[in-house]
């Protein structure tokens, strides 16, 4: 959301058909569209008068397919260049942190999950030391325990037992 406001230096300033944003947006759309269309056939399409559960997904899938093709076809005239300057480190670490939280919450409990998430995600920001990370992890776990377990009495597993 925020990043699109500011022009960022693009690594592939060369252009060309493969260097256009629309080309790859189109390819992604086509892949998604095909998956949706494939799945929608499993749901049953119903009849014209009383449509089945797969009807709407199929229509949306076909529309997506058309738009994806359109994107690829018109990519040549587009001025948007592909932005390959992706902060892989940040994207990766934050994503893994979130997935770790989801996997750990039910199995190891909230405290472990929060500590793990903070430890995993912390290296995404430069300047975090191990000590500062541990402090913020413990503080966050304590805060969450106080708020959600103590005050609000939400039933979440705090520990693994």
């Amino acid at each position: 959301m925020a990043s699109e406001d500011m022009p960022r230096p693009s690594a592939s300033s060369g252009g060309g058909w493969l260097g256009k944003a629309d080309t790859w947006a189109g390819v992604a759309t086509i892949v998604l569209a095909l998956a949706v269309i494939y799945v929608s056939f499993e749901y049953g399409l119903g009849r014209g008068g009383r449509i089945g559960p797969g009807y709407v997904p199929l229509v949306i899938g076909l529309l997506l397919l058309g738009l994806g093709v359109l994107l690829v076809a018109r990519a040549g005239r587009s001025v948007d260049l592909l932005d390959t300057d992706i902060a892989w480190r940040q994207v990766g670490l934050v994503t893994v942190g979130i997935v770790a939280f989801a996997l750990l919450l039910d199995r190891a409990g909230m405290i472990v999950a929060i500590l793990a998430t903070v430890l995993i995600a912390a290296p995404a920001a430069y300047g975090n030391t191990l000590v500062s990370t541990l402090i913020s992890g413990v503080a966050l776990a304590a805060f969450s325990w106080c708020l959600f377990v103590y005050f609000l009495k939400i039933s979440i597993p705090v520990w693994w037992f």
Binding site: I111, V138, A142, C146, V158, W159, F161
Partner: peptide
């Protein structure tokens, strides 16, 4: 926040002891 941390630390202490006691 300070008390919260104490509370949490004592929780950690309990966590270590509890499995042994259960």
């Amino acid at each position: 926040m300070f008390f919260a941390r104490i509370a949490s630390l004592s929780q950690i202490g309990l966590a270590v002891l509890a499995p042994a006691l259960t």
